[in-house]
């Protein structure tokens, strides 16, 4: 990657209980230059039959990304800042392995492009020291980008968690999810 002003002290914090489903993040995400103006963020109803609660999902930028591991074309890479980049357009063969293997359900396959695309934390902005588009527009701060000190001051009863248990698999990530104070992991079973 070229020389950057990436600010390593800043992190991403997601709190889905705050998501109101306004989709401002989707609109903002489509402004990101690195996505080719396609929205990469996911906002969906959790279970529309019983609740109006929505959930928001950005790429969690795993420490050992399953998407990159299962890619048969070596199209997905992680950089020195821990950002897992979207598929290399020259290499991606559009097989959807990453789409189906990501435990967070993040990568999207664009059938017309025959290409996988995913959030790369607005690398055009974060590499220039700015915040990702979605986090700058979220009205409820379900998506927040800043320092650990800032989030600790704003959310005294929450703890950022970046360890997720999927059955027998433990996945650690660069992006945090806000959990009740004292939590160490989020168990998905």
């Amino acid at each position: 990657m070229p020389v950057t002003n990436y600010r390593t002290e800043q992190e991403f914090f997601v709190d889905m209980q705050r998501c109101i489903g306004c989709k401002a993040c989707e609109m903002a995400c489509s402004e990101c230059e690195t996505n080719g103006h396609e929205s990469m963020i996911h906002v969906n109803y959790i279970d529309r039959a019983v609740t109006v609660q929505t959930t928001v999902q950005v790429c969690m930028h795993c420490d050992d990304p399953v998407c990159a591991n299962v890619c048969p074309a070596d199209a997905i890479t992680k950089d020195e800042f821990g950002v897992v980049h979207t598929a290399n357009t020259a290499r991606c063969i559009g097989c959807s392995n990453c789409v189906m293997a990501c435990p967070f359900g993040v990568p999207k396959k664009d059938e017309a492009y025959d290409l996988m695309m995913k959030c790369n934390m607005c690398y055009d902005r974060t590499s220039a020291g700015k915040k990702p588009m979605c986090a700058t527009v979220c009205p409820t701060q379900a998506l927040y980008y800043g320092t650990r000190e800032e989030i600790a001051k704003m959310r005294p009863n929450s703890t950022p968690v970046n360890n997720f248990i999927f059955g027998k698999e433990s996945v650690s990530t660069k992006v945090n999810i806000m959990m009740p104070k004292g939590s160490t992991s989020l168990i998905i079973d």
Partner: peptide, 13 residues
């Protein structure tokens, strides 16, 4: 993928 995202939110709940 949508199911995984929902299950994550349900686990959070």
């Amino acid at each position: 993928p949508e199911g995984k995202r929902s299950r994550l939110a349900m686990a959070h709940l």
